[in-house]
């Protein structure tokens, strides 16, 4: 996150280069959560449609269903395996997103959030989606080595907090009380679109936020509620934050100046932003969390 007011930094380029720096940790897929300027009454949606004639049909279906929900398309674009669209929409976003999920896999919905993710390395995804051209204040990214679920774009990180606008997460680790937590949230009417534990963290945090907690409070509670090994980053329209489990099994290192906060699994990624410099980095202790808010 670039902290200065009105920052128009090369967030896309920085993320591509940081992820390339730790690509050895995840050769399967790469993803980005980017935050555009929000406009009143507009929503950004990105769908996974795949490729070929089947994808063309999928896009037509999406258009029809958007019209059914009175979401008027302002602009749209096909890139890689996804279809992104900006619509004018006023209504219940959670219900809208659950409905749209029946049409196609939704990567993200938000006033400013756009999640781009696909199989391949950071540069492959950048080539297909031109992530490097993105300017803004903040974003998060992830490279994935699939361990339990498939190598597909929709099983990649970042994960959107299904049904809650503008909340995204990247996660390294394993939530061992996944089913227990998921059942609790499902009983309260939340839907899950994957069997990935990282989606659970996103929905869990979004639920806390929608109940009026701050991100800071939600992260504090997450360390109590989630079992297992985790280091995760969460981002919203205006904030980013991290939480780290008590066992400190997963790495995390950060570098902060007056202008920027950069967090990565390894210092080698941070050094990509500052080649040739010895950085004064810190490692968050186990069981800790923190948040940063951009200047508006």
């Amino acid at each position: 996150m670039y902290k200065r007011s009105g920052a128009d930094a090369q967030v896309g380029k920085s993320l591509v280069s940081m992820l390339d720096g730790c690509q050895h940790r995840g050769p399967d897929s790469t993803g980005f959560a980017l935050y555009h300027d929000a406009k009143q009454g507009e929503l950004r949606l990105r769908f996974f449609v795949g490729e070929g004639p089947h994808a063309d049909m999928k896009v037509e279906e999406i258009k029809t269903h958007l019209a059914d929900h009175n979401a008027n398309i302002l602009s749209d674009e096909r890139a890689g395996t996804s279809y992104s669209v900006v619509v004018h929409f006023e209504g219940d976003v959670q219900k809208f997103s659950y409905d749209m999920e029946h049409t196609a896999k939704v990567f993200s919905i938000g006033e400013s959030l756009d999640i781009i993710k696909d199989t391949g390395g950071a540069h492959d995804v950048d080539d297909a989606y031109h992530v490097r051209d993105f300017h803004g204040t903040h974003g998060i990214g992830h490279v994935r080595l699939a361990t339990e679920s498939d190598v597909t774009p929709d099983a990649s990180h970042p994960f959107w907090a299904t049904g809650f606008t503008d909340i995204a997460i990247v996660h390294n680790g394993q939530i061992t009380n996944y089913y227990k937590m998921r059942r609790r949230l499902e009983k309260r009417g939340f839907a899950f679109n994957t069997s990935n534990d990282s989606e659970l963290i996103a929905v869990y945090l979004a639920d806390k936020l929608s109940q009026g907690r701050t991100l800071h409070q939600a992260l504090a509670q997450s360390i109590e509620d989630l079992d297992g090994t985790f280091s995760f980053l969460v981002s919203t329209k205006d904030e980013i934050g991290f939480a780290k489990d008590r066992l400190a099994a997963k790495p995390m290192v950060m570098y902060e100046t007056d202008d920027l906060i950069a967090i990565a699994s390894e210092e080698v990624s941070l050094n990509r932003l500052f080649p040739g410099q010895a950085l004064n980095t810190t490692e968050p202790p186990p069981g800790t969390y923190r948040t940063w808010r951009r200047s508006i």
Binding site: E267, A278, T281
Partner: peptide, 27 residues
């Protein structure tokens, strides 16, 4: 020079020489 926190620097060295790493090293 320019180690930039790269991994495996100096791995497998079995001679008693002095090595100065001018920056950060990785894993």
């Amino acid at each position: 020079i320019n180690p930039d926190a790269r991994h495996h620097i100096g791995v497998g060295l079995t001679h008693p020489i002095k090595v100065r790493i001018r920056g950060s090293a990785g894993y």
